[in-house]
């Protein structure tokens, strides 16, 4: 559904590239995430794929359309949710959706249903200018679904939102994934990437360092440890033991068999730790 080959982009139209020789592909029904810090080139790449930025060098196609000169019909097939809410402040929530749906040539979803999904149906007839940041973001988010897009672009879908709202949004994304939508999301939040994405691409300074599924990355780069808290002679003790090294394996066995276990969990590497390992830099 999305194919990118040798993509370059420079804002200053010289050798200072914001995106350097990026190559990747997103299959139909896949959730693909770009994980990287601010300024890495995530939004630039997404901008090119959504037609907001021109294709300067390289090749890109979305839903079968060449992004060199995408026809307007292409936009019937995609939906874009922006990091910065950009709704019409002077229109109501319902008014914003009712207006937007008329800009598409394909069947659209019901506005009130979308507002319900976003949990802002109770303020459907209030002006967007009265909304909190979270509410505006939810409106922007559901607006991007209005044309039931095949390919859905999400730019930092949960950044800056409180956990409960972020959780609602994640649930919607998961539902859409189950429906078979192709989703391209950008984020600097590893939990989101980990939880939602089939595959992630690590991007930093415009370069796509690697692409793989979170599971494979953890398996490949993760250290295998177990954190164990237990009681010895009435006192709580904590140990971190490798499940590869023989002596640690024996010790683990010994603790399990002889002491009262309070807490135990496997300590896989987080995506952030893997990111730092691979790129040498953090996610923020």
């Amino acid at each position: 559904m999305i194919k990118v080959e040798n993509l370059f982009y420079s804002y200053t139209k010289d050798e200072n590239y914001a995106v350097k020789d990026v190559n990747f592909q997103v299959e139909k029904g896949e959730v693909f995430g770009f994980l990287g810090p601010s300024g890495a080139g995530k939004s630039t790449t997404q901008g090119i794929l959504t037609g907001l930025l021109p294709l300067q060098m390289g090749r890109a196609s979305v839903a079968g359309y060449d992004m060199k000169k995408p026809p307007r019909e292409m936009f019937n097939k995609i939906g874009v949710s922006f990091e910065q809410s950009n709704v019409y402040n002077k229109l109501t929530a319902l008014g914003n959706l009712e207006f937007y749906k008329k800009l598409f040539d394909v069947p659209t979803l019901d506005s009130m249903e979308l507002l319900k999904l976003a949990g802002i149906d109770h303020v459907a007839n209030k002006r967007a200018s009265t909304f909190s940041k979270g509410m505006k973001h939810r409106l922007t988010f559901v607006r991007s679904m209005i044309n039931n897009p095949e390919v859905w672009f999400l730019d930092e879908p949960t950044t800056g939102l409180d956990p409960s709202i972020a959780s609602q949004i994640k649930d919607v994304i998961k539902d859409k994934h189950k429906e078979g939508k192709t989703i391209f999301l950008t984020t600097h939040n590893m939990f989101i990437a980990d939880e939602l994405c089939d595959r992630v691409g690590f991007i930093i300074d415009g370069v796509l360092k690697l692409v793989d599924s979170p599971r494979n990355l953890k398996l490949q780069y993760g250290e295998k440890f177990v954190d164990i808290e237990y009681k010895e002679d009435g006192k709580s003790k904590k140990e971190t033991l490798s499940i590869i090294k023989e002596e640690d394996k024996h010790k683990l066995n010994h603790i399990i068999n002889n002491y009262e276990i309070e807490l135990m969990h496997t300590k896989e590497a987080t995506l952030e730790e893997i990111f730092i390992k691979v790129t040498g830099r953090g996610l923020v």
Partner: peptide, 14 residues
């Protein structure tokens, strides 16, 4: 400034 132009730009409208 409102950012609504970007929302408009990703629709079939010209």
């Amino acid at each position: 400034d409102e950012g609504t132009i970007k929302a408009f730009a990703v629709t079939p409208s010209r």
